[in-house]
Amino acid sequence: MTLLELHGVETYYGESHVLEGVTLSVEEGEVVALVGRNGVGKTTTLRSILQLTPPREGSVTYRGEELVGLGTHEVADRGVGWIPEDRRIFSQLSVAENVRVSVPDGRDTEAALTMAYDTFPVLDERRDQEAGTLSGGQQQMLSLARGLVGENALLLVDEPSEGLAPQIVADVADALNDAAKETTLLLVEQNLPLALDLADRFYVLDKGRVVDDGDTAEVSADDERLRRFLSA
């Protein structure tokens, strides 16, 4: 079943035309990677889905429902979560408060905290610490935990390995692998081996357009098919 579908999405920042007719789809239970060089519109695609930067043309449907025109919180209420590129944890809130604020109304907050701490035990040790004082890796774990406890059917994950030490990247990959067992993921990732390892399918974006797509089983990280779009 198709969970998410973008059709002819045209998105602008002011007069700057960033997405030029992006069309892609994500099936329920899949992990789909969105790859491409810096500045080709990967993050803007995620922002267009969330209606943070609403498309001027085209459609974004989730479980068959049009998202264009909804508020971002309404998109989130429908089960679309976001783990942003620059973590964007609430630095003045404690670790526990960052997790709590991510739990939808009416859900079991204590169970969500337990889940977050089981996934990333270091967060349990620092539950009362101000989140802004965590290391970069710990902040990324908190950002992931915040996305995971939201009980989302679709998680939009933006550059989860960016700027992290290799050991932390491995932890993050494990957490995403676990999440993928229960959640559909649309993953933006510059680390191609990681993206191909996690994803079932991929889309390549170039200059605001989808220029290639396929199964990750068909390609490798040094495949000429990908390299021509990914090398600077």
Partner: peptide, 16 residues
């Protein structure tokens, strides 16, 4: 408090 720090992120977490 979350919205004071980052309204966009708070909105993306489902907060109106």
């Amino acid at each position: 408090r979350a919205g004071s720090e980052d309204a966009e992120m708070a909105e993306a977490l489902g907060i109106d």
